[in-house]
Amino acid sequence: MTMQAILDGTAAFLNHLGLAEEPFGVYYADTKPDNAYGPKTGTPISRELEDRRELDMQEVMKTFSCVMGNVWLARKKKGAAFISTEEYGCPGGVYYCSMMKPHLRFIEHYVSTGFPGTPLHGERYMPSPDAMRAFMEKVNPRKAPAKYCIFKPLSQFTDGAEPEFVIFFARPEVLTGLFTQTIFATGDMDCVMSPFGAGCTNMIGWPLYYQEQGLEKAVLGGFDPSARKFMKTDELTFTVPFSLYSKMLAALPESMFTHETDWSGVRKKVARSVKAWGEEE
């Protein structure tokens, strides 16, 4: 599919889904879009500096900026968001977006049970630093192919570039359609995954992982308590590799959306949800 065909297909797909917000695409490039939302340049970070005890995490956190927060701004302003090695914002996000390897050991404690004897009690999302380390080492994003990891609305891919992944932001009724269309396009009952991770891990880290494994998997995310502040109530993320998304669009003519199926009942619930949240256009 050409990018124009993708955009045309997306418009039809969104209409079937009853979703007003277009999906975002994510890609890597050496230049970032004008007026993109992202972190400020932070103090240098690396495992090497951390191992030498030359990394001041209080200094690092002075420029903290969540990937999900910047994507939230981009969504509201219909612009782009980015992260880079120097403009990293979050010591976890910079790893999940494949901008830095290896990960900081600090994250193993921060996301689990903290550092004993200190005020940092940890987020308590993982039961121990060892469990968190195993998670980090499994995700293990590839080395980034360019300076920036960029998120922007799909309609802004007009220069011949293609996204690696397509990210939807949706509530359960719409997710029903996304989930089912993914199954219909692949015939794979296990093609939608939902592993543990930060908001950005499930938007990009895990999709990269499955792609590196040679697997076409969609990833359902948005369950990170720390990222919920940057999402609508009841909203989740649904990320698909661009190759799979093309198949989903190509399969639309034979799908439940264009035949007499129970989707018509779900579509009515989508409309009720939109009305309940005051999001009617």
Rank of each mutant, 00 (worst) to 15 (best):
residue 187 G to D: 08
residue 142 R to F: 00
residue 123 E to T: 02
residue 100 M to L: 11
residue 253 P to W: 03
residue 131 A to S: 09
residue 32 K to N: 02
residue 271 A to N: 04
residue 214 G to C: 05
residue 162 E to R: 07
residue 112 S to Q: 03
residue 263 W to F: 14
residue 173 E to L: 13
residue 204 I to S: 10
residue 199 G to C: 11
residue 58 Q to R: 11
residue 171 R to K: 12
residue 66 C to I: 07
residue 132 M to E: 13
residue 83 I to L: 12
residue 254 E to R: 09
residue 10 T to G: 09
residue 249 L to R: 00
residue 59 E to P: 00
residue 68 M to N: 15
residue 134 A to K: 07
residue 128 S to N: 09
residue 256 M to W: 14
residue 153 P to V: 05
residue 169 F to G: 03
residue 102 P to N: 06
residue 277 W to Q: 04
residue 61 M to I: 04
residue 151 F to T: 01
residue 59 E to I: 04
residue 158 T to V: 14
residue 242 F to T: 06
residue 194 S to W: 08
residue 38 G to V: 05
residue 26 V to Q: 02
residue 157 F to M: 10
residue 197 G to Q: 02
residue 147 K to Y: 07
residue 243 S to M: 04
residue 47 R to L: 15
residue 191 C to A: 14
residue 68 M to T: 14
residue 47 R to Y: 15
residue 48 E to N: 03
residue 203 M to C: 09
residue 150 I to A: 01
residue 251 A to E: 07
residue 161 A to Q: 07
residue 279 E to Q: 12
residue 59 E to V: 06
residue 28 Y to T: 04
residue 81 A to I: 11
residue 177 G to C: 08
residue 237 T to A: 02
residue 136 M to G: 01
residue 247 K to H: 12
residue 84 S to V: 02
residue 3 M to C: 13
residue 149 C to F: 14
residue 126 M to I: 08
residue 202 N to Y: 11
residue 27 Y to P: 03
residue 202 N to E: 05
residue 250 A to E: 13
residue 207 P to T: 09
residue 159 D to N: 12
residue 61 M to V: 03
residue 130 D to K: 10
residue 203 M to F: 09
residue 24 F to W: 10
residue 125 Y to G: 05
residue 50 E to N: 05
residue 149 C to G: 05
residue 43 T to A: 15
residue 241 P to G: 10
residue 175 L to V: 10
residue 88 Y to H: 10
residue 235 E to M: 12
residue 75 R to T: 08
residue 231 M to R: 09
residue 48 E to L: 14
residue 126 M to D: 08
residue 11 A to W: 06
residue 81 A to M: 11
residue 109 H to Q: 08
residue 198 A to D: 06
residue 226 S to Y: 12
residue 254 E to D: 15
residue 40 K to Y: 14
residue 192 V to H: 06
residue 136 M to W: 05
residue 131 A to I: 07
residue 193 M to D: 03
residue 19 L to T: 04
residue 131 A to W: 09
residue 203 M to R: 00
residue 150 I to Y: 01
residue 36 A to F: 12
residue 228 R to D: 12
residue 19 L to H: 05
residue 158 T to A: 14
residue 238 F to T: 00
residue 191 C to T: 11
residue 111 V to E: 07
residue 234 D to V: 09
residue 111 V to C: 14
residue 35 N to Q: 09
residue 8 D to F: 09
residue 261 T to A: 10
residue 222 G to W: 04
residue 99 M to R: 05
residue 136 M to F: 15
residue 93 G to Q: 05
residue 243 S to Y: 11
residue 86 E to Q: 07
